[in-house]
Design a binder for these strands. Structure first.
Length: 201
DNA sequence: CCTACGATCTGCT
DNA sequence: GCAGATCGTAGGG
């Protein structure tokens, strides 16, 4: 049985642990009656209070970061480089701006639709091996910012894939050089031996 | 108002 | 390996 992750999954206070727990889970979307599914193989944790790399650090409330301060279990989708829609999961409790960036998925269902959205004609790893690419493949845009993850458009399922702790690799996060020392935090998590990740650890 | 730049991707060399 | 794309956001005047 595949079941949607409950609100309690996102409400926990350790964003790093939740990032690990998301490896192997299924990210699903359903727009206009067409479902697409990808297994999460790469994540990054961002802590709103201690982490310079987080958009909300140290306590920056702006129209954009309001989502991060909102309820856990919602999507935080923002535009990067004016082109890419990056999908994050808000965690912890309301008022605490923690989030997890989903960086890569292994396509599992709705491959035809993913190809169409990506403007490709053949499935290979480049279909979804990066945060901008997977959002495009799954049809996620900034319009979906603040979407609840237990609704009918975007959700995450437990696909009952057993992922042992030693199957998860950690490394430093990508593209956060601006964060000084915090760029060295090992808060990127990868499914070992997956060919669907964005870059090797 | 104005400016600088980004949790990236692609195509070309 | 590298430059260009492309625009919302944040911060300063």
């Amino acid at each position: 049985m595949h079941s949607k992750l409950p609100r309690s999954f996102y409400e926990r206070d350790d964003v790093v642990q939740i990032s690990r727990d998301l490896i192997g889970k299924f990210l699903c979307t359903n727009f206009d009656g067409i479902q697409t599914v990808g297994m999460i193989v790469e994540t990054e944790a961002y802590n709103g209070r201690t982490d310079r790399a987080c958009h909300a650090f140290p306590d920056v409330r702006t129209p954009r970061t309001e989502t991060l301060y909102g309820p856990p279990g919602q999507a935080y989708v923002y535009l990067c480089y004016g082109i890419h829609h990056l999908f994050n999961v808000v965690t912890n409790s309301e008022g605490l701006a923690d989030a997890i960036l989903i960086r890569a998925v292994e396509p599992k269902a709705g491959l035809e639709k993913m190809l169409e959205r990506r403007n490709r004609n053949k499935v290979d790893t480049t279909i979804s091996n990066g945060p901008g690419k997977l959002s495009q493949a799954l049809g996620i845009k900034t319009d979906h910012d603040k979407t609840d993850l237990w609704g009918n458009e975007i959700w995450i399922e437990d696909g009952n894939i057993e992922v042992d702790e030693n199957q998860i690799i950690s490394s430093t996060r990508i593209g956060v050089d601006y964060a000084g020392q915090d760029a060295n935090l090992p808060w990127r998590f990868l499914l070992k031996n997956s060919k669907w990740i964005s870059k090797k650890a």
